[in-house]
Design a protein around this nucleic acid. Structure first.
Lengths: 105, 105
DNA sequence: ATTTTAGTTAAACAGTTGTTTAACTATTCT
DNA sequence: AGAATAGTTAAACAACTGTTTAACTAAAAT
């Protein structure tokens, strides 16, 4: 099945329309063990560079970059640039909003 | 990459070890739009037969069965049998536990 | 100026996934 | 018994995914 949509997240919330597909995309971003490890690191370390994440995880920077794209496209990852270094942090508000749909109904 | 593990969930919680891979599997179960719709239906309708879910979603029973296997294997779906009918409900405790890892750290 | 460091990008490959179709079992209804 | 209902299973197929490797850009350090 063809995939059309892959715009980077301009608005960082999914409330309002709160589409099922957007939520599915967030869950898909969390569905890979390597990516979930990245996210779990950022829960405790709050902000990290790509190299630090790759080193601490024992993966190549190339592989991290690949995965970070998926996380960023889902809106899970926020990126701040400083010189040649990019600092990554979680969009906790989006995650909270995504998970909130399951509390009661 | 080969996949070895696919045991049905004997113990329904993931606390104790609470492995990243188990959580990744739960997120993978929620990562498909069709499966997420199934789950979202069960948030409000609490318990439904496979046929009812398939009908309400406009998918074949065969496709539902396929997806329900993925959800059940992740531990997300609980199944109760009554005659020829199978009633499906969510394992909300597991979902809550899975999402809890993101609150603070 | 040249060498690290930090990050991106693309090709290639095996493995997996979602969907359709069709054949099948077991239970319920008439 | 025969037909309908509820569910499972397997094959087939295209599309997608995760990983490795290698070539690349841009900023920082020497």
């Amino acid at each position: 099945m063809p995939e059309f949509s892959s715009q980077p997240p301009t608005s960082v919330t999914l409330s309002g329309h709160g589409k099922t597909e957007d939520r599915a995309k967030i869950f898909a971003a969390l569905s890979d063990p390597t990516r979930l490890q990245i996210v779990e690191m950022l829960v405790t370390q709050t902000e990290m560079s790509g190299s630090d994440i790759a080193n601490q995880l024992g993966i190549s920077l190339s592989l991290f970059c690949h995965h970070s794209k998926t996380l960023a496209e889902a809106g899970v990852l926020q990126i701040r640039r400083e010189g040649q270094t990019k600092y990554h942090s979680l969009n906790l508000a989006l995650l909270a909003e995504c998970f909130a749909s399951f509390k009661i109904g």
